[in-house]
Design a protein around this nucleic acid. Structure first.
Lengths: 234, 234, 234, 234
DNA sequence: GATGAATGAGGGTTCATTCAT
DNA sequence: TATGAATGAACCCTCATTCAT
């Protein structure tokens, strides 16, 4: 019915195809929400950043709250799904799997703006109970289950000793969450900047072997020289 | 307008020595800031909760921002100081010291309202750079240094293997921060509730020995009270 | 962008002869204006109800105000004209004529949506002076003159006693206007619903007996169909 | 508790006692609502007319809708009550009573701004169902009952002939309502202005002669010469 | 002629802040 | 010191109107 002719459209402000708008708006909103928080973000600014007028926002989102929800919904689930597939297909050790998951997750989430969503969610969970519920179902619980399965499988295989898997899973996840929060709050604020690669490497090392290290023969971790992680653990 | 009869009224609301006021106001403000976040907290509510009128707030704090800063400033420093003294006086193993610190900290911070401050600070750090700076100096860095010294000393004494102490310290702290954030956001929201005691115990266990546990013969760590974790985990 | 294939599509929505459009739009607008009032009616809704897009409205009406005026203008004049002809052609008593007029008018106006126009006009007269002027000229004055002539003729013929015809005419009309307003506002709102037939019958009875006086024992007025009112009133 | 000293207060803008404010605000709101209708009335204007800022409105009324409701509530009920008492205490004929009621009502309502409320209510009843309900209960039904009792008593006493009292009551009231609406809409718009006194006199004459029937030969009503109404009916 | 995405002025509402008492 | 009425800037949201397609 509608035929898009290859004529180069002069890109007037409101000739942009409707399909692109929501994504642009969500991107702008994500930026600002992450940067300033929910309340401090003015829809005027979101609109301006997306290059549209304020009213246009309301063609696509019913309210600020709905916009917020849409940002949350679109943001993290895909990254989780990727790792869910990874877990199903993985063949090697659980330690390797954990490393891969962490690496993936950092690539997908840590380096992009959506990594700022958890900060938002922690801040606003009590103000938006239904949204918190949604987030817990779709992000937290799925991520938790994902890692939990790895931990549990590791135990069953004898790779990890028996333990309280529920809490152990949380301990595995906590430093990842912390890193995200840090990056979107204090990081660089005082000159201090956490190097994510190194931080994650150490996290993995500690998770696997603890501060006291593996009494076995090989060195758990070379402090700060940042040996090739693949080497340091084989 | 209101005529104060010269009868000595020893305990009316507004006869209270003014010294108590700031603390009452800060307590009320803390409650609400923690519960709702900075922007969503109305000074009206703070005043009402403190049992004063809105105008009175301005006798003690120049603005909402100043009130917020005062809340943050007053919040965590004392808890840190306690542990700083603990480190200086400690005699036993670093593992024991770590356990004590965590326990203290949970007692002081985890169970009180001030435990909600980190959530606030993460959320608002980018909106209040100077406050973030203060918080980083007075809370984060001091807490970091505190734990960092323990880790480092553990290494020098040979209790811990050599490692990247800076990141290791963060990995030790991250689950503590996470627990605080969780309690003031999602905890109980979905029926899921983290049991702090158990969580911290597992945390300590993992930190010290990792998921893979200590292959040697001695029990990883018997967290004070609890049954042998090996047991408790089936 | 949209390419119309030369296949003759005989009855698509937008192939309709443009002559029908204005009437459809006016009908939709009338419905909504009557239901919600001028300000609360959104052009979006008018367009949707007429099955066109919002922009199309502006092909036919310069503005919301013009649309409103068109609705009002088109509304009642035909009904008035019908009765004007009736008066000219009538042969019998004035009482009969009055009854016929009232009956006609209720048929034409009372049961249709245009009966809601007076409510609109009373509400908006002060906001649209020129429209009020038009309405007064074309509807009120003509209706007034119409009934006034009947009253006056009745007097001259001796059918009615002498009286202040101007106000008497208004008194004749007022209950008719009231009925219209009622139907489009409170009717049925509280369970109370005025039965127009009975109401009009009583009105006629009162008006006539008032105008003519009751010569004494004979039944006031037997409105066409209905059971003898004397009976119907116990 | 609060002692109002007789010192002439310099009448600063916001020293005005809180007690006076609501009435001032309601008066301003009434004026504007009546003049422009509900939607077209801006709270800014209401505030300005009352000599306060917009925010002040919200100290006294939760929303525009509540303000509207308050205007309605305060407006008409007292006038009704006055006539309710009148009915209870009345000793003479029902015709006299009706005349008094109409006269009172015009004094209380017709000449003041609150006479504009019915116009508002008819216009907005469908948009505010709960308000319509309230109005019907507190104003319409009470007024209806008031007049209905007079009519019914007149019948039982033989002063009026038997009739359908329910509708007859409405026919008595309709011209009164009409007059109010007229005054707040078209009156004077086209040069035409209804003289309330004369109009009401004629109304009464018609109603009574209709209700009582003409005793026979005496002239019902001298057209527009405005004979003393007391005379014209005895 | 018809569309519907885009606009932007305008109004209701909130709330930090002020200040006469 | 304490009050709380008053302020007014700011923000969310609506909707009549426009215009490229």
């Amino acid at each position: 019915m509608t035929i898009t002719v290859p004529v180069p459209r002069p890109e007037t402000r409101w000739t942009r195809r409707k399909d692109a708008r929501p994504a642009e708006l969500l991107a702008a909103a994500l930026d600002l929400f992450v940067e300033r928080g929910y309340a401090a973000t003015r829809l005027d600014d979101v609109a301006r950043r997306a290059g549209v007028s304020k009213g246009t926002l309301y063609l696509y989102f019913e309210s600020k709250e709905e916009l917020f929800k849409a940002v949350i919904r679109g943001g993290l689930v895909p990254a989780i799904q990727r790792n869910e597939r990874l877990v199903q297909d993985h063949a090697g050790t659980m330690a390797d799997l954990l490393e891969k998951i962490i690496r993936n997750w950092w690539q997908d989430v840590g380096n992009s703006q959506i990594g700022g969503i958890p900060k938002l969610m922690f801040a606003e969970a009590r103000n938006f109970p239904d949204l918190a519920h949604f987030y817990q179902q779709e992000v937290i619980n799925r991520g938790y289950k994902l890692v939990g399965e790895v931990v549990e499988l590791g135990q069953r295989r004898g790779e990890f000793p028996p333990m309280d898997t529920e809490h152990a899973t949380r301990i595995v996840l906590a430093p990842l969450v912390f890193l995200l929060l840090w990056r979107h709050s204090f990081d660089g604020c005082d000159g201090t900047r956490i190097d994510p690669e190194a931080y994650l490497r150490v996290h993995l090392g500690i998770i696997l072997d603890g501060l006291r290290g593996r009494p076995s023969n090989e060195p758990a971790k070379a402090p700060r020289t940042a040996a090739d992680p693949a080497t340091s653990r084989r």
